[in-house]
Every structure is written in structure tokens, then in C-alpha cells.
Design a protein around this nucleic acid. Sequence first.
DNA 1: ATGAAAGCGCTAACAG
DNA 2: CTGTTAGCGCTTTCAT
Lengths: 336, 336
Amino acid sequence: MTITIRDVAEAAGVSTATVSRALRGLPNVDETTRAKVKAVALSMDYVISPSASRLASGRTGSIGVVTPQVAGWYFSTVLSGVEAVLQQAGMDLLLMSVGDESSPVPRNLVAPRLNRRVDGVITIALAPQDAQLQSVLSLHLPTSLIGAAIAGVSTAGIDDVAAARTATQHLINLGHRRIAVITGAPPGEFFTAPHARYLGFTDLMREAGLAVDPALETRGYFTIAGAESAMTKLLAERERPTAVFAMSDEMAFGAMRSLRNHGLHPGRDVSVIGIDGHDMSELLDLTTVAQPVQELGGIAAEALMRQIRSDDGQVPTHVQVPTQLIVRGSTAPPAN
Amino acid sequence: MTITIRDVAEAAGVSTATVSRALRGLPNVDETTRAKVKAVALSMDYVISPSASRLASGRTGSIGVVTPQVAGWYFSTVLSGVEAVLQQAGMDLLLMSVGDESSPVPRNLVAPRLNRRVDGVITIALAPQDAQLQSVLSLHLPTSLIGAAIAGVSTAGIDDVAAARTATQHLINLGHRRIAVITGAPPGEFFTAPHARYLGFTDLMREAGLAVDPALETRGYFTIAGAESAMTKLLAERERPTAVFAMSDEMAFGAMRSLRNHGLHPGRDVSVIGIDGHDMSELLDLTTVAQPVQELGGIAAEALMRQIRSDDGQVPTHVQVPTQLIVRGSTAPPAN
DNA sequence: ATGAAAGCGCTAACAG
DNA sequence: CTGTTAGCGCTTTCAT
């Protein structure tokens, strides 16, 4: 029924070993032989059996990508960067989503599902202390992290502290003094983007001699809706902020929405800045600190491939790509 | 080094066959034996080797998901629906992106990459005549289509004609007579969403006794930027349209952006309606015909699983989920 | 440069 | 209910 390497070997008048070598481009095969084998294989529509190949070689030819969610701008954009590189490297991409830590029902660990089926793993935005990430690391597979840094593991990301500083600096430069922040997760819970960005914010505020009013710190949970109510809460303050730093563009969108619902105009009445460089930020005229999200995925995937190919303990790489302040209409000098 | 089924068998004092049965929950195993085997396997951290299992059984336990792009709201949202179902079904998800047909360099066909490594395939928004889809179908694997219909294959989608009619009707009901359309791909090239939606539009216009002015038909290529310039072109017409039907929300966003750049206000000056129910549509106050995108992914995945489980030729299912008109500020009666 | 042969770790009859 | 025994289709020494 299905045609095997032996059929090809017979048809080509060589051994299965030679077919295997020829088709995989291994050395020590006469080029004439190789050409013939290839031709025969092609004519017979021969396709190598991955399962058999994997079993015999121990290599799976696939990479697991672990992410807290598959929908959402950031995740899907990173994923597309990863996918492009893996495809080009001839690797299969196994997608596994793990709810994030805050999910009510603790999902099963991914590690078992990853265990014997991938040659390496890429995680997206999993915090170092996350149980899922820990379980992945315990597999001792080549691993590459996106948006989180751990010593000894390849990572790709931005300098979150610097990005937050850039955003804050921009607001201060415009003349803002009363600046609110919409954080994602509670800062400090994990040392990851929210925490680092919070640090960058408070550091710079302190350096500028500005107070960080606890009443102006709210949580937006990295969602539009969450940030919208956070902003609404901020607007209820007796002394409103003149500017808001949202830790993600989507949260900035939510803040802008709240402003509009209150008859306020982003930029004119209250300045809003985000971090991301979301596809929609241009459309919504949002000032933001852009990060090359897709590129991050590509970088992580390439680091992983390098690690797998030179299967000795290749030194893990830590790539930090620059961010870029993009000024648009949502930020302006304070009205008063 | 790695522990195999035989280690477990010996430790448990049974044969490998029994271990295999016990662990997979097959019948004809004494529950006492099963419990013991499970305990031993657990204590030894035994994990079944997928490659070996696949080779021996012929089943891969994984599903290929073929999509024109992995980033983008529609695709990532569908994908998340698919992923949820597959994960719950214990299936691996192999993600493969194929550029779309319009890509300059014709990518390699996915079929070979899919060939012996999946038990079934789900395609997202691949048109019936698309060479990639054809190659997938030629594999004769259980297949489930999202956003495209082909007889004999399970499909999940919306009634694109009806959705377009609903959108058009809404504009007509508001009193619009001069209605423009921003299509995606050139209509007719493939019989899929763009074509069906175009049909719905023209049908209803005709029924309403309204002319479809060729000058008011433009292409937005399903992108924000594309639609923006399409809208700009429409605004240059001597006789501007009072309303625009964009075949996707993202194109509607682009149209709205163009309006704003021209000092016009969506709804007040020109009405805009889209199709999708994009996450951002609420934020941008866009009237749209919403489709349950994530659900479509789930439905397709479930249909596929059913097909695979009852491995006889399960009758393909054709699910068409309803859409819903969501009226927001971007549509209003014509100004004049 | 090529071939022979021994597995890789599991599943699936087939016996018992 | 459980064990025996062939493979599944390829890779990989080890010879030649």
C-alpha cells in the first residue's frame, strides 16, 4: 500500500542504507547514485515516514511552542515570527497553549505532552517562576525564551525597564507631573514585563523628582476592558492625572475608550502612552514604545535551531532588541 | 537511559502487551493489574514514546492546521478555537502556514509536509481552487474546512451571502442609496468569502432597485492600509457614496481612518459597516455583522475528531453558524 | 562508496 | 485476562 524505503531501494537497485543516505544529503554517496535514487524516489512519490525516522534516529524534527494564549495580537505576532523560521528550517511546529498562571483551574503541565515529541521548546511570555515554565525547563531540552530572561537559557526580548523609562520620560518631557500608570499583573508577583516596566516607571519618576501617587497606580490586566475600568477609576480621583502610562497598547486603547466615554480627548485632555507598537496603534493615533514583536519570535527560533544543530552545549544567547518611541496624537503637553 | 515499556513490564511483572493495554485504557485488563501497572509506570516516570507508538499503530495523534497566515485577528482567533478542542482531545497541533495564493513567490505545497505526519487536517480560509487546498485534499485524509465550502468535506462557516445582505440591508434601511463596497480579493477569482459577500451585496442592491455603480467598487485586499486607500479613492469621486460596506472589519477600520484624515466623521458624514465582530470594532464604534470566529475553529476541530474516531467514512458535516448585526456609531442615516 | 543487519519502542494479532 | 511474537519503516554501526 504505502511505499517504503525498501521499495525505493529495490527499484533503484541499491540498499536501503544508500537510499537513506542519498535522500538525506549525507556524504559518502556517489553523486550518480544519489541522483538516481532521488529520481526513483520522486517517481514513486516516496515520502519518508517521520515516525520511523524518529524512532530510529531519536530526533523528532519538531519544536514545541508554549504560549499562554494563541489569540491576541502579541502572541500571534510572535508566533508568526517563530513559524517563519521553523518552516524554513524544516522543523514541525507543535503549538501548545497553557492557560496563564492566573487561570482559576490550574491546567495540566505541558511538560509531559512535550516530553518525547520535540527536539526543543520555545516559550512565549512565560514568567521565570511560572510552574509551566519550570516544568518545561526540567525537561532539559534545548529551550529558547521570549519575553523573559533566565540565566543559562537563550532569551529574546526587549529591555522592559528601558522601554518604560522611555515612555515615562516622554510624558515628563511634555511637562506632565501628575502621571498615572496602568499596570498589567500585580507588580512583583513575577519578575517579568509588568514588573520590569513598573521599575522603569518608578525609577524615572524618582529621578525626575516626581511622586508616584499610589492612587494613580491601577491594574488593567493587560486587557482593553480591564484598562478601561482602570482609567475610569483614575478619572474618579479628586485630582486627576494629566497623563497615563499604560504598560501595553491594548491597555492604552482601553484607557482611550474610557476617556472618550467621559467626553475627554486623548492627548488634549489626558495624554496616553502605551508599549507595543500594536497594529492598531497607528489607526488610533496612540503614542507608543514599539517593540519588534515578530522579530523576537524569529530570533528565538533561530537561537534554538543553532542550539540544536551544534548539539554540544552551545552557549545560550541573550538578545535584547531596541525599542522605538513613536509619537502620535495621544500625547501632548498638559492642558493647564 | 530512557526507560521503555519493557522496563515497566518487568518492574510490574507483566508483559509489555499488558502494559500497553493498561496504560491506554483498553479493555480486557484486570483492574487490579491496570492499577498496578499505572502505579509502576508513574513511579518510574515512564512516558510513552510517540514515535514508536506511531510507527507501530499507524496513528500519529496529531492534526495539521493549514492557514494562509498565523498573525492577524481572524486567523489567530480561529486557531485558538481549534487549539482548545484539540488539546482537550489529546491531539497534537501541527501548525503550517502557506502564503496565500496572491503571494509573489508560489510557496512549496504543504501536502508533502503533512503527508505521513498527521491524522487529519484543518484548513483556515483556503479557497476551493487554491492549489494548497487541492494538494491537501489529494492526501485523502480526514479534513475539515473553515470558511470555505466543498461538497464531501466537513465545513464550518457563516452564510457569507446572508451576512453581506444583512450589512447592505442595514445601510439601505437607514436611507442610503449611494452605497460603495470595499471588496477583498477581486470578486470571482475564488468562490469564497469575498465572492459570496459580493453576491450578497449586489443581490440586495438589485432587489432594492439600487444601482451598483462600478465606480463605487474598490478593493481593499483585506488589509487596513488597502482599504484606507480604497476609501480615499472613493472620496475622490465626483459623487461620493454616503455609505460604505467593507467586507471585513479591518478594511472598515482603514476606511474610517481615511475618513478621519479627510476631516470626515464615520457615521455622521459617511456610514461604514464591516463584517467580523473584530475585537477592536467596539472600541472604534464600528457597526458590523459579527461572526463567532473562535467557535468556528472549535466546530471544525470537533467535526474532524468525530470523523477520525469513527474511522468509517463518517458523513461530512456542514455547519453554518448565524451572524449578528451589531449596530454602533459608524452607521447612521445619510446627512442630506 | 555501499551493503548487511541490528535495533529504535511500541502495537496488534494470535494464542492460550 | 495475559503473554508471545511479529513487525511498523527507518537509521546506523560495522563490514566490505
